[in-house]
């Protein structure tokens, strides 16, 4: 192999860095939507490399549902400080109060859907014209069809039938006032690509991605951690299990995986061996309807 050859991770990295730089150059007020999960942590790493030795030229924005893992929040604050980035946090809790929204009910009261309100308000507050998100096309069918630069109207809505053709590596970010663009720099990465890149680049992750002991209940075959937001019913059996998280979302809608994988090599081996997809294994809310994501995206979701 010639020395002038990039392997697949280096190619993906180069593509993502190219996209980050296009965003910084084409937009006046971009923001990186930071969820606290491995995908957004990887994005921060890529953004850092894209603009080194300068700092990342846009803020990290966290839409805080109030249902986060404390480990993820702690890590978020540490990371923003580490890369010297501005961190903007807006709370779903406040939106619920201001707008008198109805809190979700039930055993797993997910505020996932309500995040959209806070996100759209935050976009308006800061006049963000580009929001960089960590969605990957391999995650889900609706995402497989979204462009890297995805124009949203003033209501934040995605119209799958009116997407701009995206040719070669040329990104058209021109928009009308009031519109914004969602940009997905890691569209072409798969879950395994992300993990392999984290290992290659030695990227730090919150501790909950690795095996630890936790009190859980079993719900439709998934393990859900007991927390102040999820309480066991009389019929639940509370178990203490060794688990790790494969994705990190809200405590109310993210399931744990039983695992003894304590380091990246072991986690990656388990993911290679698994026969269940990331969302299928860990998201409690996605099974509701096949088109759940399509509906949320059309309404302004990430």
């Amino acid at each position: 192999m010639s020395k002038y050859h990039l392997d697949y991770l280096e190619q993906l990295e180069a593509e993502s860095i190219h996209i980050f730089r296009e965003v910084a150059a084409q937009f006046e007020r971009p923001a990186l939507l930071f969820s606290g999960g491995k995908d957004s942590i990887t994005m921060v790493h890529l953004a850092k490399k894209a603009f080194a030795p300068g700092k990342i030229p846009f803020p990290l924005v966290h839409i805080d549902t109030g249902h986060n893992f404390p480990e993820a929040l702690e890590f978020r604050d540490w990371l923003a400080n580490e890369v010297n980035a501005t961190l903007v946090v807006r709370k779903v809790e406040d939106t619920i109060k201001q707008k008198n929204l109805t809190e979700p009910k039930g055993k797993f009261p997910s505020r996932n859907w309500l995040q959209t309100y806070t996100l759209l308000d935050t976009i308006e507050e800061f006049k963000f014209d580009a929001c960089i998100g960590g969605a990957r096309r391999d995650e889900e069918k609706a995402r497989a069809k979204e462009r890297i630069f995805s124009v949203r109207d003033e209501f934040g809505q995605w119209n799958p039938k009116l997407q701009r053709p995206e040719l070669w590596n040329i990104y058209n970010g021109r928009i009308h006032k009031g519109e914004n663009v969602r940009v997905f720099p890691i569209s072409n990465w798969t879950e395994l690509d992300i993990w392999n890149y984290i290992r290659k680049e030695n990227i730090d992750l919150p501790s909950i991605y690795f095996a630890h002991e936790r009190q859980v209940i079993e719900h439709e075959g998934q393990l859900v951690a007991i927390s102040e937001f999820v309480q066991p019913d009389a019929s639940d059996v509370v178990l203490t299990k060794q688990v790790r998280y494969r994705t990190v979302g809200d405590m109310t809608c993210t399931a744990a995986v039983e695992s003894a994988a304590a380091n990246l090599d072991e986690v990656i081996n388990e993911i290679i061996a698994t026969r269940i997809s990331e969302r299928g294994e860990t998201r409690i809310d996605d099974k509701v309807t096949e088109a759940a994501m399509e509906d949320r995206k059309k309404n302004g979701y990430f």
Binding site: Y8, R137, D138, A144, K145, P160
Partner: peptide
């Protein structure tokens, strides 16, 4: 409706 992207990996590529 539109172009969709699919991903798969073998040990070689």
């Amino acid at each position: 409706i539109d172009v969709a992207y699919r991903y798969f990996t073998t040990p070689k590529r």
